[in-house]
């Protein structure tokens, strides 16, 4: 027997309901195991959109990895979007703790630095293990944001990390979500990171409507810009 009872559960859902978070044709729901990237500049509400996607599954479990926002704060943000605190668990890798303690709680697992990519993986595993069978109804996993991870680790490492995490999402039939500000990095790095996602939601500013979105990589959806 080597490591066999350390196997995680595969989710048993037909699809992931996206409500009307993205008012784009063909995107009311998405297949299990899909990795979605939200790509756009600053101040376009990427994180908010990611939280909305996390919260859209009322019965689903959710995990957010955050190098940007304290775990407790992110849970509050989630609550304001979702209208409920649960079931979000956070892997807080900001490297700071508002309570002064890095001891894990039920809802927040701490990683000492955004550069500790193995630690982040361990945090994710702690969450899925605690969720146990409840993962069967669906698990949404978000990384907020890749841009911050890129400030702490070189692009090669972030690529490898992402390859492993998106691979887990795909193998276990989770819904994967991540955010990236493409303007903040080398275009070639953006290109290689982006190609690990099945679906890319691009956001941009638009004069009259505020912002627009277009969806790439999802056959059921048009590839044109739409007001958001």
């Amino acid at each position: 027997m080597s490591s066999e009872d350390l196997s995680s559960r595969r989710v048993q859902v037909e699809d992931y309901d996206l409500d009307d978070v993205l008012p784009v044709e063909g995107l009311a729901a998405i297949d299990p195991g899909t990795n979605v990237l939200i790509s756009g500049g600053r101040m376009l509400g990427k994180d908010r959109l990611a939280l909305e996607l996390l919260a859209a599954g009322a019965d689903d479990q959710a995990i957010a990895v955050t190098p940007d926002t304290a775990g407790s704060r992110l849970r509050e943000d989630f609550a304001s979007v979702a209208g409920r605190l649960d079931p979000l668990r956070v892997v807080d890798c900001t490297g700071a703790s508002d309570s002064g303690s890095f001891d894990d709680t039920d809802d927040v697992k701490y990683v000492t630095s955004p550069g500790d990519l193995t630690g982040i993986g361990m945090g994710i595993v702690k969450c899925t293990r605690e969720m146990g069978e409840s993962v069967d109804d669906g698990l949404r996993l978000a990384v907020l944001s890749l841009s911050t991870l890129l400030r702490y680790s070189d692009p090669d490492r972030v690529f490898n990390f992402l390859h492993t995490v998106t691979g887990r999402v795909s193998a276990a039939d989770y819904l994967g979500i991540a955010t990236l500000d493409p303007g903040a990095h080398d275009p070639q790095d953006v290109n290689t990171l982006t190609s690990q996602f099945d679906v890319v939601v691009e956001l941009r500013e638009a004069d009259e409507v505020g912002r627009e979105a277009r969806v790439l990589g999802h056959h059921e959806s048009p590839r044109t810009w739409q007001p958001l």
């Binding site: 490591s3 066999e4 196997s7 990519l117 982040i120 993986g121």
Partner: peptide, 19 residues
């Protein structure tokens, strides 16, 4: 080869190997 990542020790191990 992706299914191996369902195994927690493989998943974390894969991350550690890169690092």
């Amino acid at each position: 080869d992706e299914d191996r990542l369902l195994d927690d020790s493989e998943f974390v191990g894969a991350l550690r190997d890169f690092e």
